[in-house]
Amino acid sequence: MKNSQLYKGSLNTIIMKLLEENGRMYGYEITQKVKLITAGELNITEGALYPALHKLEAEGLLDVEVEKVDNRLRKYYKLTESGQKETVNRLAELEEFIRNMQNLVTPKQNPDLQF
């Protein structure tokens, strides 16, 4: 993943957000969707994606469905009810983080000090 240290903490939220928008998705589809949205800027590695999906599943935030597609089985992930609630919380947290980072990186000028 590009700039992994910065993106690492947000991987679960990215996955949950995508599932919230798309209903259900399979692993490869998630990697491609992220690439597409970020115009290739962000590349989720397979080694990070699957452990994250399995952990979210074990936490009860994701549910799995298996379907036969072409000549093979495909595992789809979708948000559970608690997963949907948690997505809202995590997105709010992430937005707050982005706002704070923006304020820190580009602080607004204090109008009192302006002439």
Binding site: Y26, G27, Y28, E29, Y50, V66, R72, R74, K75
Partner: peptide, 16 residues
């Protein structure tokens, strides 16, 4: 279960 998921992943990537 992991074989199924990873084999499907590789198949998708190869087809792409």
């Amino acid at each position: 279960d992991l074989q199924t998921e990873l084999a499907d992943h590789l198949a998708n990537a190869i087809e792409e």
